[in-house]
Design a protein around this nucleic acid. Sequence first.
DNA 1: GCATTAACCACAG
DNA 2: CTGTGGTTAATGC
Length: 225
Amino acid sequence: MKDCIDCAIRSRAVQTLTPEEFNIHRENCAELELEAGESIFKEGQLSSHIAYLKSGLAKIHKKGIKGTDQILKIVKPSHYIGLQTILLNKVHQYSSSVIEKSVVCYVDIHSFKDLITRNANFANELILHMCEDEMSYFNRFVNVHQKQINGRLADSILFFFDEIAHSNKFVIPLSRADIAALICSTRESVIRSLKDLIDMGAIKVQGKHFEVINKELLISISNKG
DNA sequence: GCATTAACCACAG
DNA sequence: CTGTGGTTAATGC
């Protein structure tokens, strides 16, 4: 069993804990390695644990009316998933799955609550985390509703380029249908829009392998909407 | 009206 | 699952 003591990417919240509190925390953690496509938790399940993504990538998705899930956000490492359920609900209101091989830490919800009441700095960091989360949702909301599909797609490609990848070439581990679910569109429109961006000379695409050719162009497409 | 945009559908690889 | 083409509905000029 892995131990929190060895964890190289402790969250900022956990870094505020005293040794005694840290011991409480590490006794209520379990680290799991998940393969691409495996679920972290599912909408409708009891929320006994929250998740902390240590490595890999995850998506947060929620069932819609039409059967297909809507992707609410892509989660990067060193971020929590499911914090809302701590105080809000006993049942998960959305699902989360990893989209590439990932390492996830499950933290018992009761010990987490306990630490919030014990340590104000810990709580503070969690609030900060949730504020950042909410701002990202605000921005996405405006973008998705005001931009046309090329702008939305450019946005998402720039997200993976700026925040996930650290080179011009990178993999977006999502199917075309998943990209559509992320930018509120359809598989067909994503394919057409990708072709547009390729024809404009902004990107190159081979399957899930993307290469940014002209970042300025992508940004201008994103800004123009 | 006419053009643009994007969803829906069917079908092929 | 991915890509293509045709059709269709909504919206803007």
